[in-house]
Nucleic acid binder design. Structure first.
Lengths: 228, 228
DNA sequence: TAGATTGTTAATCGATTAACAATC
DNA sequence: TAGATTGTTAATCGATTAACAATC
């Protein structure tokens, strides 16, 4: 429980995802082998991860999926609500407002926000509200996670505002790399927040360079066919 | 030149990005300090990276941006064309077809492809073509990088096809984790390819868990306010 | 010169892998 | 039992950091 670093948590979330799917297939037990394959790590890593958080399996019999899922959920914390708002309802923002995958995973988009009055419509199933209502809405609904899909020039302003309203998780689709550094006074970090930047054009650029360097890029263990 | 592993290449691409912006501001010299700040690494890493690829700066004077950019471009390889196609022209796919950021970075979306005939329109500035034309188009235009934004159930089929047509870089927006493992026969990896999976719902799920575990997630150096 | 920055080496740290005993 | 899998420890590996000489 003590050594939960970030990459461990990310793996635990993925184990849990895989387990849900295996369970829905009717599978009862799973080996570190299987989980490793599905998540892209070695079986040793899986067993070490579980050992770190004191989860035990059965020698020869692997892990019981139901108990494993319960234990993972205990560690990770119950997620009773997974509600987000989307700031910026341009092409990308509105695509995400209707993203089918979200409901499968229990994620609900409660509302979108935009500064363009022509986009505002509070009658929609997922309402699009004016940016001026953001603070009231976020505090009233205790929103913890937001998707930022605004134009580049308003990204930091929107981000700063959301942090001050208490939002702590951000999925950032702008090309501005948002950082909460400076906001955070360690060691008793006041408003700790997490930003995941999804920089689409950077990802593409990386691809162009990586495929052309493939003959040279050898040092990685997965240097040849690499997935991220 | 010999030890170019993947994470090094990714940093080099980011240095180059930052340098472009600094240059456009009229700045002439840059310190490892500045570059590190912009990319989110320590100055020591920047200097070590440059030393790995035999780039030298001036003690006391830092690095000249022009020469640095040239040297980085030499290492990374000239990118004369950065053309992509988008498979799947639903909400996300078509949002990306008109993504403004791409042209700023010199990325061109040449065409979209879809199996839904009602979406097909070859007269558009960026044409939307039938999936049946994919092979002909990809080979005719020597497409190296593709964005996959199809429904979950056709993801692997589309991916397999593209690999067989010679596409080597993939930005995958489906929630199916595409892997080119198995396709790759080391050590002389025949069709080496690179997949970057952008799993939006997984990113959001991660955020929900991370923010709730923040008090526990301490081991990381950036455990409090963490950006990715 | 004094101060600041590079470039490199050594030390540290953490993560991954290897090995294998325990045991079902 | 034999075979297979877990769980843990030790060994390896690579990446990060610290330290500092070189030098502009």
């Amino acid at each position: 429980m003590q050594h939960l670093n970030k990459s461990l948590v990310l793996r635990l979330v993925r184990y849990l995802r895989v387990l849900k799917k295996l369970k829905s297939l009717g599978i009862v037990n799973v080996f570190s082998n299987n989980l490793g394959d599905a998540v892209g790590v070695t079986p040793a890593v899986v067993r070490k991860d579980f050992s770190m958080i004191s989860i035990q399996g059965n020698k020869r019999g692997g892990y019981n999926i139901d108990t494993l899922m319960n234990e993972l959920r205990n560690i990770l914390g119950k997620q009773e609500r997974q509600d987000v708002v989307i700031i910026g309802c341009g092409r990308i923002g509105s695509a995400l407002m209707h993203y089918k995958e979200f409901e499968k995973e229990g994620i609900r988009v409660l509302a979108g926000f935009d500064s363009d009055t022509s986009r505002i419509n509070s009658e929609l199933p997922i309402p699009i509200l004016p940016l001026d209502d953001l603070e009231k809405y976020v505090t009233a609904h205790s929103i913890e996670v937001a998707i930022i899909a605004v134009p580049e020039n308003s990204a930091t302003k929107v981000f700063d505002d959301l942090v001050s309203y208490g939002v702590r998780g951000f999925l950032n689709f702008t090309s501005v790399e948002l950082k909460c550094q400076g906001r955070c006074d360690r060691p008793n970090c006041g408003h700790n927040c997490t930003v995941h930047n999804v920089n689409i054009s950077l990802e593409l650029e990386n691809l162009f360079y990586l495929i052309n360097m493939h003959e040279m890029v050898m040092a990685d263990q997965d240097g040849h066919c690499d997935d991220v």
